[in-house]
Each structure stands twice: as structure tokens, then as C-alpha cells.
Design a protein around this nucleic acid. Sequence first.
DNA 1: TTGAAAGCGCTAACAC
DNA 2: GTGTTAGCGCTTTCAA
Lengths: 348, 348
Amino acid sequence: MVHNPTIIDIARELGISKSTVSRALAGHPSVKESTRKAVQEMASRMRYKPNYMARNLTKSRSRIIGVVVPEFINSFFPRIIIQIQNFFEKERFRVLITQCDNSPETERRNLRLLEDSMVEGILISVTSKGANTDYYNELLAKGTPIVFFNRSDRSVDASSVTIDDYKWSFFATEHLIYMRRKLGQDNPSIMHIMGPEGIGLSAGRNRGYEDALVKHHLTMSPEMAVRAADITRDEGCRLMSAMLDRGVLPDALFCFNDHLAIGAMQAMLRRGIRIPQQVSVMGFSESQSALVTVPALSSVAQPLEEIGKTAAALLLRKIETPGSESVKAVLNATLNIRGSSDPDALNI
Amino acid sequence: MVHNPTIIDIARELGISKSTVSRALAGHPSVKESTRKAVQEMASRMRYKPNYMARNLTKSRSRIIGVVVPEFINSFFPRIIIQIQNFFEKERFRVLITQCDNSPETERRNLRLLEDSMVEGILISVTSKGANTDYYNELLAKGTPIVFFNRSDRSVDASSVTIDDYKWSFFATEHLIYMRRKLGQDNPSIMHIMGPEGIGLSAGRNRGYEDALVKHHLTMSPEMAVRAADITRDEGCRLMSAMLDRGVLPDALFCFNDHLAIGAMQAMLRRGIRIPQQVSVMGFSESQSALVTVPALSSVAQPLEEIGKTAAALLLRKIETPGSESVKAVLNATLNIRGSSDPDALNI
DNA sequence: TTGAAAGCGCTAACAC
DNA sequence: GTGTTAGCGCTTTCAA
């Protein structure tokens, strides 16, 4: 490794002191125009690069922010992360990304890694409800701001950016009811594949489903709401197959997410069940595969860009204004109606 | 922000010098057992955390390695990155991940970011052929090791981890030929949607396709090999539609990647063309959606875990043994035969 | 086995 | 305007 030039080298070369070089480089107003010019020229001539470790040490700042997500195999979190990176690149912060394979233990390890890396703030989507609440609070108490996005820990006093899962789940279910009634089924049976207990969002989405049934005076049979162990395609396939094996065919199906919905669709299509004619299907939080299935999968799309930007902006504010109050931002989602629930959209 | 305890605090508390504390914490053998114990206890009692910026400054190391990928919307790169992170977590390195939206300019910005971050090494999958060769060489000359993975810049003298795109593309094409001949078509027409010129891999995959045709004495009509502008589903759909509009229906289709293949399949299915009965389809580099399409898409699967681990290990070696020679690792891939090319696999 | 002292590269009072 | 000096928190000679 070649020795990188430092401000001392520049100073020596120019016969001035390193403080002046430092000030000149920092654009400090008290530096004479001519010397500033000279310093800058010499700096670029010597290919000088500031040593950010030294700079950060003196300022005792790291200019790093940390991100923790449950996974990044699906495009969901990566799309948000891109926004976060774009935002912080402009602010001259580095972004340290960690993912925890849906494991709360790994999430904890990741938080520790970020803490050890002296990040100035953390953006996190919680992996498992309540598992690391103590750590979030500890970090906050230490003065490290945290902003939750998508999956928040509501028991923690921090900013968050989410959508109203209850509301959109309600709308999604309502849409399914409308579609079946349009076909003349006054009392359609609506099945729901619930998300795992560990995911905080599951409860809200489940309540939305239930309340939609209540509003439309539909009977709520417990066997129609089944709990998923994870949120994969295989699990959706397994649960739907089990239901069909019991000889039950619902009129519509609302799933916690797209992967479960796609698996369930595959299980049905394999048995010759026609979608959406016999069963209307609706997923949640728009996956990449939603447009690949046949028919295309209806889903609730979240404003990923806005989530990322908003969360980043909220975090920056906390970093720059330590005492500032927390904001719970609730963004709007979109109901993307496609062929899996609406016969009129089949050609799309 | 509360003042974090430093080794000075520990030293004062114990009435010893900070050098001793430093040595005790570093596990230096010359420290008396009893003082080492005392220091460690005090350290954990005070919740001491080493300031890595200070430590790195003195050692002039960053313990950060950088990763540059073209995108991480698809699961391909994230799966590799996870391996890289796991590997380097054990080695107590932080991993700085950047993605460049398939833009060579952004790739350059990312490299600069990594350079400014004083990373000790870089793992990169090249976005656009030749665009930043000068920068790679510059970094190498400066002493920053680089390891290419998946998409390498062959003109640069550095380690790389890839698969033999030519070979697997050849096999994939051959498989299509076999399948059509099995159906009695002695001279099947095999269409190829080539990757963009900018992607270095395109050439190798294209040669594999061509040579397979040659080997099997099939005529190679230039109109059967069309160039994709990008590697998206939409582009695949567009190109296939154009082909069909010209009244041409190939017997088989080999695509640069899965997304193009899926788009092309959609274009065909929409017009009632039957896959694999009328047209056999084969993608490349296994996407998440390959199992979601109906029929499921045949594809060439790359050993993502091994790619990640190998690349990480090669980089670490370069970091630890600066002079060590470069290694061009070529890993094995797998032909995943599914319903889109093989009628016998339709039920899978 | 330990302490004193120098220094990693930079910033920021405080002088002049 | 610019130089001097004193750190930021840690490691590492060199002495003792």
C-alpha cells in the first residue's frame, strides 16, 4: 500500500501549516483566496483524499447509518433500501445494510454490529414481534435514533413509517366480497391465510379481514382463517392443499402476502380449479411474481419509494435535531386489481 | 449522546496505565493474569466498547470490504451477498454494499464511495463491459485488491469467480435440440434472445448457442438471434411479439436470462401457443419466478452460495497476503429441466 | 510485567 | 489570515 498524502504533505509542499490546509480544504471563510486556491490545486495534484477515519475520530461522528431488514431475497426490501441509499448518499452518509434471515437472534447480532460500527442512526423493519424491544430501547437511551419502517415495534417510542395494514386488508377483503356478490353469491365464504404470529402485521391484517366480513354480514367460520407458519409459496401451497383435501372450497381467498397467495393458487390450479371464476384470490404487498402468475395476482401495493425516502428523512431529522419529536407516518397503499380476482381484468 | 467509556476511564478506575489496559484487552501475553482479569471485568462492568475509528486509525486499516453489484432487485445478487456477509462477519469485517441500477456511471460513483471509505478490498460484478476498466486497474495499482464475481472484466489481472457461460449455454441449447428431435423435428429452428451488448456474458452465451447449432448441423439463420436492449420481462415480451408478428414461430427458444424467457412465454401463451408442445423454452440463471410460471421454466442454475463464499475467500487471501497470485475460479452450474422444455416434467 | 511517550490524520480553540 | 497547540481513542515502541 502506497502512503496516501495527508494534509501535512500538502502543508510541507506549500510551506504553510497543516491547520491552514485543513481550513482551506474545509472551505473556511477566513482563508485567503490565493492560499485556498494553492491548497486546492496542490491537493488535487497530489491526489489527496481525506482520511475519513481521522476526520470522524476528531469530530466523533461516524457518518454511517445502519439498516436492518428481515431478508432481502424478495424485491420488497431492496427497493426500499435503494431509496434510503440514494437519500443518504446526498447527505454524505454511508449506509451499512444488514439482513437477518427472519431470525430475531441474527437481528440482534446485526444491531450489535451496527452499534459497534458506531452508526449515527438505524432504520429497521422488525423481524419478530417483541423479540428485541429491549435492545431498541437501549439504543435509543444511548442516543442512537431509530426509525421503524414497514414492520414497526409499536411499544417503542420512535418514529415509524408504515401503511395502515388494517385498512388495506379491510379494503382487499371487501373487494373480494364485491366480486363474489357480483357473481350472485350473496354469502360468499372468504378464506384467509394469516401471517405468522411472530409478525406484528399479521394481527392488523387479520382484523381488517374480520371486520370486512362483519360489515357485510358474512358469517365468520374459524376454519376459514388458517395460520401460516412462514410466508413462502410452499406454505401457501401446503395450506391450500390441506383445505381442499378436507373437501372445502372457499369462494375467495385473501392472503397475508403474495407468496402465500401464489402457492395457494398453484395448489388450486393443479386441481383444475378455475381462478377467478370459482375462487377469487387477493395477495398483499405486491411481489415481483404477481404479474407472472396466470392469471395475474391482485394485490395491495405499498409505496416503496415513499416509504424509503420518508424513513430516511425522519432519521436524518432525528440525527440533526436530537430532541425532535417522533413522527408516526402512515402512507397510502394501492389496490391493484388483476385477473385473480376480477374476470374483467383477465386480459391484463 | 452519553460519553462512551474509553480505555483511559478503565485505566483511571483501576489505577493503571492505559497501555496496560490496551494490551490486556488485546489479549497480549505479557500482561499478568490478574490484571488482565481485572481489566476485563472493569471493561464489561463499564460497558466498554472499543472505538473502532480510533483503533483503525492507529492501525491504518478500515476492516471494511466493499461490494458492487449491478442491481439487487432480483434475488440473484442478494443471495450471493448474504454469503459474502456471513463469511466476512466471521472475519470481523464490515461489508459495504452498493448497487448501481445497471448504470456504469453509478458503478463508478460507488467505487469512489468505497475508495473514500478506505475499504480493504472490493468484490464486484461488472455492470457494463469495459466502462470502468481504468478504475479497476487504478484501484489495484493503489493496492486495493479486487475480486470479480459472476460478471468479470477479463482484461483486468485479478481473481474472479464465474461459471462457464459458453459451456452451459451450449448445453442448454443442446437440450432444446434433443427435446425437439425427440418430437420428430430433425431440423428444429432454435431462436435465441441475446443479452445486451454491454453485458460481457452475452457474447459467451451467444457463442454457446451458435456452437450447439453447428455441432448438430442446424442452419443458423441470423433472424433467429435477436438482441435484447435490457434483460427485463417486458423486453422479452416485446421481442417475442415482434417475432410472432412477422409470422415466425420457432420450435424452441433459448434466452439470455429468465426474465426475458418469462416475458417471451407470456407473449406466446397470450396467443394460444402451447409450451412446451409447440415451443420449448429455456432461460438462464434461475430466477425466483421460474417456478411460478405455468409451465415452470427450465433454466441454468448457478451455485450462488459457492460463488459468494469463493469470491469472499479469494478476496480475504489477497488482503492477508498482498502479493499472492490471482485465481480464476470457474464453478459448475446445473441444468434445471422443467415443464417449459420437457413435457415429462409438466406435472412438476 | 508495566508505564511513558510518540503518533495515526485530522479539527478546533487560542494566540498573534 | 495563519501558526501553535492540544486533543479525538487507540496501539506500539522504548525504557524501566
